[in-house]
Design a protein around this nucleic acid. Structure first.
Length: 575
RNA sequence: CGGGGCGUAGCGCAGCCUGGUUAGCGCACUUGACUGGGGGUCAAGGGGUCGGAGGUUCGAAUCCUCUCGCCCCGACCA
């Protein structure tokens, strides 16, 4: 591609809307343009990257025996109504009405649609196992699109669905996908972790997330430094060595202390000079909806002052699908004072984390404005249901091995695989006849990869202050050829190199513009192609061109290569 | 949806509080000259429904009301 004929509108300054590295760089380097909130144009460069990610995903899926199909994005409401998701998906779904008044929607995911295919076309155990996948545009009316391509309302996703005759079969299909996913992320050249995860609303049992490691990631994960244990903090179980043995042996008397204006743990630590680990943090969660004038059910959750409550674990302990932080008004109605809340005198449901339950002579709110209590002891002064309710954190012991310590990472969820069981197939009547002639329900799994999100995730993980640093496998072109000066011999040498490289299968973007060197180099760094090849009159005089990897930040470290060997040398770097 | 912020040229911003000539600056763009290894210099240009609607006023980018859009923090997810 000739730069002078391309559409690569680079920007010197970052649009103020962009906050993430990937969003800013995709915009500045001319890969994408925003059209609406969470909706983007892929300009030529961006589209090439997207296609490359798609190709890798497709190749690995095909290799794993999955069959590519394409389901519609525009869907009649019937299927989601069959499983109840027409209602449960709520406002997250884009709904449309056709001219006849029929309710339709834009597909946010396709379990129902693919199950419909299965129920119609898969009738015998002989028809399984099968795995159907598609690479499709998905639509979700996200409460908050953000981060450019990281979280869109319209995005590209690869979604695959497996169909098996048994739970064991489903596990085998799941395992096949797990391997395929690892191949995909390996080929993309990204650092990632496969982590245990919450199955959430998808209605499955076993599930794992593929997290691309990046400081800007929204998900917190922990991984063991000695074994292969890794989990989303939502489900991670960190071991705390000292939980059962509090150093205080004697119980102190319960005592009120005045703490006006001190509503935070940090404030209490300062005021009372007592460590956070000796405090009980009181958090209120609402579970179930408010009914009419009656306030919703509220549970008091206690974790140690230096810990965080895990909402997924809380929901599980309460036996509900999800909980939300209770509104301040409802907390007051439940008989507690926000900022000074504690278990003493609280008559509602109390859940306490195992670590918090072990704390002796603790400090907590007195349920009185401006007052806390100290010398608080469970059993004597209060009690609650003991569960594991805290978020695992950096430094916890590994639950899976001896001596391992958990490290904390931030990740971008770029893939998620589930065993669904018969959640959808049972509701939709997707059955088959087994060998023994008995009618059974198909056992399913589903497997997603955020294709467009990966474009952004790759940049979050691979960039510097000057621009993108594409992994070679998904760079829009491999070589950024820069010519300096207007001498005809420079142009001729570059033209030949350009043609020969393409002929040799190396993708080249040639910056043939009449621009000053500085402009070209800055743009080259911004675009982020893996190799920059510079042809100038000076080098040419000795038959040399200059080659610099994008990952090499010192321009003086560029390597000189004989023009005669250039094609072979460059090609070798991409094989 | 709760909380915060922003809409003035393609991009980044000033002007608004305290209404008053042709609405300004940097970058980008056009033309010319010089220049030529890290976003160069000079000169001359083009480009604006000041997000939209209504109102107050002799007069509105500026004040008031409504509205639309976008971004950030939270709950959700690939």
């Amino acid at each position: 591609m000739l730069f002078s004929r391309a559409l690569i509108p680079t920007l010197k300054e970052a649009p103020q809307d962009a906050k993430n590295a990937s969003h800013t760089l995709l915009l500045r380097a001319g890969y994408i343009r925003g059209v609406g909130a969470g909706v983007y144009d892929y300009l030529p460069l961006g589209f090439r990257v997207l296609k490359k990610v798609e190709r890798i995903v497709r190749e690995e899926m095909d290799k794993a025996g999955a069959l590519e199909i394409l389901m519609p994005a525009l869907l009649p409401s019937d299927f989601f109504k069959e499983t109840g998701r027409w209602d449960s998906f709520g406002p997250n779904m884009f709904r449309v009405t056709d001219r006849k008044g029929s309710e339709m929607h834009l597909g946010p995911t396709h379990e129902e649609i693919v199950t419909d295919i299965a129920r119609r076309e898969i009738r015998s155990y002989r028809d399984m196992p099968r795995n159907l996948y598609q690479i499709q545009t998905k639509f979700r009316d996200e409460p908050r699109p953000r981060g450019g391509l990281l979280r869109c309302r319209e995005f590209i996703m690869k979604d695959a669905y497996s169909f098996d005759t048994s739970e064991d079969g489903a596990k085998a299909s799941y395992e096949t996908m797990r391997k395929a996913y690892c191949n995909v992320y390996d080929r993309l050249g990204l650092q990632y972790r496969m982590v245990a995860a919450d199955s959430g609303a998808m209605g499955g049992s076993t599930s794992a997330e593929f997290q691309v490691l990046a400081d800007s990631g929204e998900d917190a994960i922990v991984a063991c430094n000695s074994c292969n244990y890794a989990a989303n903090v939502e489900v991670a179980k960190g071991r705390l060595a000292d939980v059962s043995a509090d150093s205080d042996s004697a119980e102190a008397p319960l005592e009120k202390v005045a703490t006006p204006g001190t509503k935070t743990i940090a404030g209490l630590v300062k005021l009372l000079e007592i460590p956070a680990a000796k405090m009980l943090k009181a958090v209120f969660y609402q579970y179930g909806e408010a009914e009419g004038a009656a306030p919703p059910a509220i549970a008091l959750v206690l974790v140690r002052g230096d810990h965080e409550a895990n909402e997924v674990a809380v929901a599980r302990a309460l036996g509900v699908a999800e909980v939300t932080m209770a509104a301040e008004g409802d907390v007051v109605k439940a008989g507690a004072i926000p900022g000074y809340a504690g278990p003493v005198g609280f008559t509602g449901k109390i859940l306490v984390d195992r670590a918090a339950a072990a704390v002796k002579n603790a400090v907590s709110g007195a349920n009185e404005k401006g007052t806390h209590v100290k010398g608080l002891n469970r059993g004597r002064d209060w009690d609650g249901e003991v569960k594991d309710l805290r978020l695992a954190a950096q430094g916890d012991g590994c639950p899976n091995c001896e001596g391992g310590v958990l490290q904390a990472y931030k990740g971008i969820e770029a893939g998620h695989i589930f065993i669904l069981g018969t959640h959808y197939s049972a509701k939709m009547g997707a059955t088959f006849l087994d060998q023994d002639g008995a009618e059974k329900t198909i056992v399913m799994g589903c497997y997603g990869i955020g294709v467009s999100r990966l474009v952004a995730a790759a940049i979050e993980q691979n960039h510097d202050k000057d621009g993108i640093r594409w992994p070679a496998s998904i760079a829009p072109y491999q070589v950024h050829l820069v010519t300096l000066g207007k001498e005809p011999e420079v142009n001729e040498a570059a033209k030949k190199l350009y043609d020969d490289l393409w002929a040799a299968g190396v993708e080249v973007l040639w910056d043939d513009r009449d621009e000053r060197p500085g402009v070209k180099f800055k743009d080259a760094d911004l675009l982020g192609l893996p190799l920059r090849v510079t042809v100038g009159a000076k080098g040419l005089a000795t038959g040399q061109i200059e080659v610099k990897a994008r990952t090499e930040s010192d321009p003086k470290k560029a390597e000189l290569v004989a023009l005669a060997d250039a094609v072979a040398s460059l090609k070798a770097r991409f094989s």
